[in-house]
Computed example of a mutant assay.
Amino acid sequence: MLLRALDRFFGHEASGGILLMLSAVLAMIVANSGLAGAYDGVLGSYFAVTINGEGLEKPLILWINDGLMAIFFFLIGLELKAELLEGKLKNPSDVVLPGVAAIGGMAFPALIYLAFNWGNPATVGGWAIPAATDIAFALGVLALVGDRVPSSLKVFLLTLAILDDMGAIVIIALFYTAELKVDYLFLSLIPLAGMWFLHHKKVHRMAPILMLGVILWVLVLKSGVHATLAGVVTAFFIPLKDKYGKSPLHSLEHGLSPYVLYVIVPIFAFANAGVVLKGMTFGDLMAPLPMGIALGLILGKQLGVFGITFAMVKLGLARMPSGANWAQIYGIACLAGIGFTMSLFIGSLSFTDQALMNEVRLGVLSGSILSGIMGYIALRLSTRDAPKAEAKAENAVA
Rank of each mutant, 00 (worst) to 15 (best):
A5L: 14
L6P: 07
L6Q: 11
D7W: 10
D7E: 15
E13P: 07
S15R: 08
G16E: 06
G17K: 12
L26H: 07
A27Y: 05
I29G: 04
S33Y: 12
G34R: 10
A38Q: 12
A38H: 09
Y39K: 02
G41K: 00
G41E: 00
V42T: 13
G44H: 07
V49G: 05
T50N: 13
I51L: 15
G55P: 06
L56I: 15
E57K: 13
K58L: 15
K58G: 00
L60P: 00
L60I: 09
L68C: 01
A70F: 12
I71V: 15
F72T: 08
F74M: 09
L78V: 09
E79H: 09
E79R: 08
K81P: 07
A82K: 14
E83G: 04
L84Y: 10
E86M: 10
K88E: 15
M106F: 11
A107N: 00
F108C: 13
P109D: 03
I112W: 12
G119C: 09
P121V: 09
G125T: 05
G126A: 04
I129V: 14
D134R: 01
A138I: 11
G140H: 09
L144T: 01
V145I: 15
D147T: 14
K154Y: 12
V155D: 04
L157P: 06
T159H: 01
A161M: 06
A161I: 08
I162K: 03
A168C: 11
A168M: 13
I169K: 01
V170R: 01
I171L: 10
T177G: 03
L180M: 13
V182W: 14
V182I: 14
L189I: 08
L192Y: 10
M195T: 06
F197C: 10
L198T: 01
K202H: 13
R205F: 14
M206T: 10
A207G: 00
M211H: 03
L212V: 02
G213P: 00
V214M: 14
V218K: 02
V218W: 13
T228P: 05
A235G: 08
A235N: 06
F236V: 08
F237N: 05
F237Y: 14
F237V: 06
P239G: 07
D242S: 02
K243C: 04
G245V: 06
L249N: 08
L252N: 03
E253G: 02
L261Q: 14
L261D: 11
Y262T: 08
V265Y: 10
P266C: 12
F268L: 11
A269N: 04
L277Y: 13
I298G: 03
Q302I: 07
V313A: 00
K314T: 11
G316H: 09
S322D: 15
W326C: 05
Q328C: 04
G337C: 05
T341H: 02
M342H: 07
M342Y: 11
S348L: 04
Q354G: 02
M357S: 04
V360Y: 11
R361E: 03
S368R: 06
I369A: 12
S371L: 08
A378Q: 08
A378C: 13
R380H: 12
T383K: 07
A391C: 07
K392L: 15
N395R: 14
A396C: 08
A396V: 13
